[in-house]
Design a protein around this nucleic acid. Sequence first.
DNA 1: AATGAATGAGGTTTCATTCAT
DNA 2: TATGAATGAAACCTCATTCAT
Lengths: 213, 213, 213, 213
Amino acid sequence: MPRQLPAHTGRAPVSARGTRTRIALVQAARAVFERDGYLDARITDISAEAGVAAGSFYTYFTSKQEVFGAVMADVEEEMLHPRILEPADRDDPVHVIEAANRAYLLAYRRNARLMALMEQVSQIDEDFRRQRLRRARAFTERNARALVALQRRGVADPQLDAQLAARALSAMVSRVAYLRYVQGVGTESVEALVGVLTRLWVGALGIRSATYI
Amino acid sequence: MPRQLPAHTGRAPVSARGTRTRIALVQAARAVFERDGYLDARITDISAEAGVAAGSFYTYFTSKQEVFGAVMADVEEEMLHPRILEPADRDDPVHVIEAANRAYLLAYRRNARLMALMEQVSQIDEDFRRQRLRRARAFTERNARALVALQRRGVADPQLDAQLAARALSAMVSRVAYLRYVQGVGTESVEALVGVLTRLWVGALGIRSATYI
Amino acid sequence: MPRQLPAHTGRAPVSARGTRTRIALVQAARAVFERDGYLDARITDISAEAGVAAGSFYTYFTSKQEVFGAVMADVEEEMLHPRILEPADRDDPVHVIEAANRAYLLAYRRNARLMALMEQVSQIDEDFRRQRLRRARAFTERNARALVALQRRGVADPQLDAQLAARALSAMVSRVAYLRYVQGVGTESVEALVGVLTRLWVGALGIRSATYI
Amino acid sequence: MPRQLPAHTGRAPVSARGTRTRIALVQAARAVFERDGYLDARITDISAEAGVAAGSFYTYFTSKQEVFGAVMADVEEEMLHPRILEPADRDDPVHVIEAANRAYLLAYRRNARLMALMEQVSQIDEDFRRQRLRRARAFTERNARALVALQRRGVADPQLDAQLAARALSAMVSRVAYLRYVQGVGTESVEALVGVLTRLWVGALGIRSATYI
DNA sequence: AATGAATGAGGTTTCATTCAT
DNA sequence: TATGAATGAAACCTCATTCAT
């Protein structure tokens, strides 16, 4: 009978060997999660996949939830943050929107398994969901500010609530990506999706641009 | 976890008493699911909530998945299927869209707990997810056909891929509803949401209407 | 992975079969505890000893601590509560004291294994220790009141603090019993112990009695 | 739990550095034992408290039991052995008894945490219990011899079995100390306890002394 | 049809101990 | 000597499902 509370675990490694093991565990966790899904992933499997003893998992993590967090942290770089204002011909809003949509869809397709996983874990783990919403909010804010700028320049429909419009259109893109690349709905190419989504954005925002005359 | 194939399957009740018990179980299941979520709902809890013995559950159902199906069947009526073409001033597409969005959001808000549950179970139960996608597809088809009609009438942007546009815009609405009523993102009123969403639809579809002159 | 807190368990049986099983578990627990000691007793062993599946333990108890409580409750009757005033020639305090000591020692010897167990668990389980101290206090109170009565009758040394004296002399008897019957210190007979202890009590309390002229 | 016989045993340190480490470990062990109790003290905690790596523990000790022994050896000096014949006015047995009781109680109070620990470990570790009983026996022998001397001088009740009486009265004192300073029973001052205990001893032994005329 | 008790597989978690550096 | 990571045995506990009344 355990006579003691968990106490600690979840330490950062000090030695090189420890660092290696931790990395192996995170990689193994990612593989197991992508293969079995969050719920069916057993800690045992992660240890095995990493080639370490079952107990070694607890040298670095406290729970499945915690490794999952580590996997996500590791992966953050990999998932790009497409920004509406970054690319291409900065003066033509249509080009900007198109570039952003393309970047997003490509990244989504590239990491489809991971995105599926995130979607799943969001429905299972309260903390992760909250964290994710927070990030999405930041992203939407940026888009909203960009939209306000367009409205000021007289390029976009000034009657739109920028916040809501940004939220709704972002949701549209991410949901389309989810349906296409995780759920396998439809067979359209990235370019087909980019074309339609951009046209919808442009119309929705009331942008008048030479691109679509 | 099933160690053998179930000896008997959930049967339809024969006696009046049986009918009552089955109804009690389904109601209890809904309450427990909404309270604890799908994963944490124990069959034991459902029986207890229904005021029957643990074993009685298996007189009517084989598994958690199965009661969940029954709950959904029971609830189907309650969840409306907003159709783009049904209400109001059928000749003004803006009115039609607005009415559909309003109906959808109101229904979503009314059944928010249930919608959260469906979203969750979609991520957990393969079968349920597939079933739900099938329904969503049917719904989208209808919208796509309506859009084609608008394009033929010269009211909507003829260059849009009707399928994709319908899918994307439906996804937008349902995701906004999810964020607002399940995740608690924002504090906007139904009317505010309806206003923005409708304006986005109308713009996106390139509808030229007196309503928005 | 358990996704749920313990929830409940530890129910009282409703059916006759359940009652039988619970009794079997308590008896088995007592046997295992007396054989292996509290710490080394495994819940698994208790179930096995009772001839039921491992999981069945949790139908009636939540923890080792809880069965132990049940064992003690079951046993309470069996352990007599020797009272200084009950037996024999009520007017002769020496007879009364002697009878009480004899009764106590006999009971202790009869339940030596159990008493050893109680002593052990007192050092391990906070709650049990507190409970036991509470009982001991009640017992001491009674003795203290009896002593006050003797002091009022002019039979016992009036200068003694009755509370303290009662506590000290009770402790003396129980500790002697523990040393003799649990630790195996000495080889004296019950009567030898009764003789000395009574003589010590009588002297300590300053009782002047014909019995010891 | 040991799965193999220990490859090496706790050695005495050779270097000065080693000596320091060993001392740190013993001190840490005492602190952890007093804080967490014997059972809940983890070797890991002791190492941490001592500020050394987990593995370093095994350079000096083989087991928890072994450090505990070292702690006790370290502490032996600190725990006085009150002797009935040592102090004060050697000719007045009452003074002698009183002085011994006072010395014992003061020492017990001073080391209450440690005494609690010893009491606990006695119930858990067979070897330690035996060792402790042996010491107690030696102590009782001395008291018994002193009592015989008193009987020969005609000062104490000659009918008492000296062995038993010494054992019983010593047990009384140590148990009262345990209840008062470890279990927190009562609020009496040392002097109040000394007063009552001495009076009980004197009466119990049938000592006739000017002190109590 | 209902009851409620029994079953048992199997993943989780701990921590004393070992050992390569 | 010290370090700190790795090991792995072992018990716990849950709860879906069965089944005798």
